[in-house]
Design a binder for these strands. Structure first.
Length: 308
DNA sequence: AATGCGGGGGC
DNA sequence: GCCCCAGCATT
């Protein structure tokens, strides 16, 4: 059974895999850059940024030595700007502690800033071809549906899912297997409206079997979407005007400045909101202080700028 | 366990 | 308008 699952998914992958730039390299640095960019950011949006970033900072040494302002500029459009700062800090740690060579041990990778359990496993597997299991949103969903059951009937722990994911890996083929299972989650076993009708694993899938047995609206969507929306109506926080939104605006404004230029706080205030008044200055101070704590800007006597 | 953190695209 | 996305760090 497990041999069939492995064989069928690997065959499917060889036929349908997308040609993604980070699948063409084993350069650990390039893989690390890709995996950090891909944290909570879609493949299509990462691809052009990935190329540009590697052109600007081709090696660990180049990234470690670059002005942080440049790194933050190259991160534009990816979101979660702290990732850019942490990635550069990771490069600096790699220079200092590992002679510029990205470490291959999961535990060493995990200790780098901005590298969590997913990214550490992904680098170990995709750069160093280790047979290690890890969970991203795709693998988590595929393994849950395949090995546990429908989305809305149980909530397995990551530990349980990781055990399944580990058992599935064909020995010696961790790289291809993990790429394949992620690809299945991205292209077929999607969060909503999975395309079970063209899934290579449907005959092994517990979730699919349950859906067939229950005769749920299989013809339409092949699987019902998760039901958890009902529980909470979510934060309902409108993004525009939120704290996150203004943080993004501030970094965007500073990115456009010539290198080294400092922006006085009142000017910054006017540029991020048209209705800015002196009454808003404490609010702006708070945002700026938090961004400084995150390493995304520097406060000086005259105002703020990107870190150099 | 819960929050904060960007921003674009899909429906 | 809400959900989703190759998560991580902090509390």
């Amino acid at each position: 059974m497990i041999e069939q699952i492995r064989s069928d998914l690997l065959h499917w992958f060889h036929s349908y895999a997308r040609d993604l730039p980070w699948r063409r390299t084993r350069d650990p640095y390039a893989i690390m850059v890709a995996e950090v960019m891909l944290q909570q950011t879609q493949v299509d949006r990462v691809i052009p940024k990935y190329q540009a970033f590697l052109s600007a900072f081709p090696t660990v040494a180049a990234l470690a030595a670059a002005p942080t302002a440049e790194v933050i500029r190259l991160w534009a459009g990816l979101g979660y700007n702290r990732r850019a700062v942490n990635l550069q800090r990771a490069a600096q740690v790699i220079m200092e502690q590992y002679g510029g060579q990205v470490p291959s041990a999961v535990a060493d990778l995990r200790a780098l800033p901005g590298i969590g359990p997913y990214t550490a496993g992904a680098i170990a597997c995709f750069a160093f071809e280790q047979d290690v299991a890890f969970l991203d949103t795709n693998i988590r969903r595929v393994v849950r549906r395949l090995c546990v059951g429908p989305d809305d009937r149980s909530t397995p722990s990551d530990g349980e899912l990781l055990a399944h994911a580990t058992a599935l890996i064909p020995p010696g083929q961790g790289w291809t297997w993990n790429q394949a299972i992620m690809e299945l989650g991205a292209l077929i076993c999607t969060s909503t409206n999975p395309a079970c009708w063209r899934c290579p694993l449907r005959s092994y899938c517990r979730s699919y079997a349950t859906a067939v047995a229950d005769d749920t609206a299989l013809a339409a969507t092949m699987m019902s979407p998760p039901l958890k929306r009902v529980a909470e109506s979510r934060t309902a926080e409108p993004f525009v005007g939120s704290r996150r939104w203004y943080r993004g605006k501030i970094v965007a404004v500073l990115r456009e400045l010539p290198a080294g230029e400092v922006l006085p706080l009142p000017i910054l205030g006017e540029r991020i909101r048209a209705d800015f008044t002196p009454d808003h200055e404490p609010w702006l101070q708070g945002l700026v202080a938090d961004l400084a704590r995150d390493g995304l800007l520097v406060m000086t006597e005259e105002g703020v700028r990107l870190p150099q």
